[in-house]
Design a protein around this nucleic acid. Sequence first.
DNA 1: TTCGGTCTTATTGTCGACAACAGGCTTTGA
DNA 2: TCAAAGCCTGTTGTCGACAATAAGACCGAA
Lengths: 216, 216
Amino acid sequence: MRTTADRVFAALQDAIVHGEIPAGSRVGETELAERFGTSRGPLREALRRLESRHLVERTPHVGVRIATLDYSDLIEMYYLREALEGMAARLAAINMTEDEVAGLKALLETHHQDAALRANVAYLQREGDFDFHYRLIQGSHNAALTELLIGELYHRVRMYRYQFSAHANRPLKAFAEHQHIVEALEARDGDLAEMLMRRHISAARQNIENHIKETA
Amino acid sequence: MRTTADRVFAALQDAIVHGEIPAGSRVGETELAERFGTSRGPLREALRRLESRHLVERTPHVGVRIATLDYSDLIEMYYLREALEGMAARLAAINMTEDEVAGLKALLETHHQDAALRANVAYLQREGDFDFHYRLIQGSHNAALTELLIGELYHRVRMYRYQFSAHANRPLKAFAEHQHIVEALEARDGDLAEMLMRRHISAARQNIENHIKETA
DNA sequence: TTCGGTCTTATTGTCGACAACAGGCTTTGA
DNA sequence: TCAAAGCCTGTTGTCGACAATAAGACCGAA
């Protein structure tokens, strides 16, 4: 059976990612403990785990603040993802099974049916297993890499999406890039897969950087 | 003032990394609490933080085991480092100050004076600020990347060094590669710096993989 | 003898109370 | 009026006791 600390952790993480608890706000332990119907013990455990994922910030004797993402954090994260997901793509080209590649291709096909995408207004992917990057990372068959990207970074990325209510403003391009990556995987071309993935993420970052300059 | 949980965390991490507590051994919370002269509360917090760094493994209701590194973990970590430190080198070439580059060059000069290195028997670097990779990573001026590599991965790497009492068995080559990387930094050539760093780490990995095959 | 089930025990998970600290407020002196 | 020192309050850090769980020992039946 899952422990109560686990439940609190999952619930709190969801609340933070979805913005139910405003980013940057200070929260008290007692307050949160009551909210989740438990004592401060398990709650503190949940907070520590969230801290290691950079979803909350703790300062000794002062308290807990929900983490905020400013633009520089966001840009830094894109560099991380470029390096890590690039490597993931390289490894996926080598290690993915035929079935996994076929599954990924089928996933893209369902995206292709999406009306919003066809109209070039949005490229929304359902979370978790239905996310292209999510599946590709798992295809690297590298546990440490997967844990790092999905266990630690993924939730911060999700938080960003909700916080800035961000949707890629280049849906068709992004979709086309996904398709090219899958083609590289099919060809088992690790070099190409890594290069395409890095360009894919780098383009998204530059897109944001330009947006900052324009609005500044 | 530092909290007791902080002290316990630092002490325990050291004990694990240096092998004072054998890797793979099961340890009880009460036992550890007594050893560090505190109660189970702060100790559990320290354990949680060590868990997020993959230095201990916890299973609910069962207990704590000091993490072990098998070869596949080690190999996976090298892929991570190749991706991340490669990116760090690229960013360092762009973001390092002239002083930092000069400092790194001076550091290599002190390594060059080391007798063991000259005799090609070992390339031992003092830990922390005196480690080449450590300094270069900080030179990336990317807080997220630095936190990830130094805060999370670095201690696992150190643990491996102690556990396998590993010393690079290609000291002069490794040293020469470091020098070439610094030259790329001086030239502010990000592409080259990344490529050299990736080859540097990749070579170390292949070295280990070959070693495994031979002894298997 | 071996397999299945029950029970025991040691360990972890949880709780509520107390101690210690940080930040703000008040007070006092110049 | 302003600044500095001391107090006060609310919060977090720490502790010891209790409850719940899982692993292993023990027993009995096939």
